[in-house]
């Protein structure tokens, strides 16, 4: 029990350090600003390391699925992001719908960002009994994470990001890790366009 708690604390610390490191290093090394689009639409593949032991599984589960985000840039550095993801594994389906602030640091073709989300988790375990098929639970979800964008064209950006994701479903808590990658489509902009 104690070792599990230690592992969770360690994970949380690592993610916190990740976020702090993102901001500090980027702020210290970036000077010129990347163009800031008004809207960003992200879609791509998502891998989730799902904390299924609290649900009775013998070990963690690997979920593959999708991740989509819509980001509205309020300023060049601050934005609001709505995040939705779905993961599918052995008898587990996990959907998360969250929204929250995002901080961005831009330089030329690159962008580093960190965000914090809160929202809803909808987890389903596909087991069948005499009276029921599929057990679903809806609960709170929150996430912390960040990532890196690299411009491919003025309209499209490649993105990779990682999140620590906490969900409360089935009367227990799950502490998951989600990694996503895909393309970002830009719509509208302020600032100068990058040289590509």
């Amino acid at each position: 029990m104690a070792s599990k708690r230690l592992g969770i604390v360690c994970k949380r610390t690592a993610i916190f350090l990740f976020m702090v490191f993102s901001v500090v290093t980027a702020a210290s090394s970036l000077s010129a600003g990347q163009i800031a689009p008004q809207w960003e639409f992200f879609g791509g593949y998502s891998y989730m390391r799902f904390d299924s032991p609290p649900l009775g599984y013998p070990s963690w589960s690997n979920l593959n699925g999708f991740n989509g985000e819509v980001t509205y840039n309020i300023t060049r550095r601050f934005s609001v992001t709505a995040d939705g993801s779905g993961g599918y594994g052995s008898m587990i389906t996990a959907y998360n719908y969250m929204i929250g602030p995002q901080y961005n640091l831009r330089k030329d073709k690159s962008k580093y960002f960190a965000h914090a989300f809160i929202g809803k988790a909808e987890n389903t375990i596909g087991i069948t009994t005499l009276i029921k098929s599929g057990f679903e639970s809806v609960g709170r979800a929150y996430a912390f994470g960040g990532g890196y964008d690299r411009d491919l064209t003025p309209r499209f950006t490649f993105r990779v990001m990682a999140d620590y994701l906490h969900t409360d479903t089935f009367g227990t808590s799950q502490t998951d890790v989600r990694i996503s990658t895909g393309l970002v489509f830009h719509l509208g902009h302020f600032g100068r366009r990058p040289k590509l």
Partner: peptide
């Protein structure tokens, strides 16, 4: 950043996930 971000997946020296 990627390395630090992936640290939680590696278990950070504690009992690995």
């Amino acid at each position: 950043l990627i390395a630090v971000g992936l640290a939680p997946l590696m278990g950070c020296g504690s009992p690995s996930i």
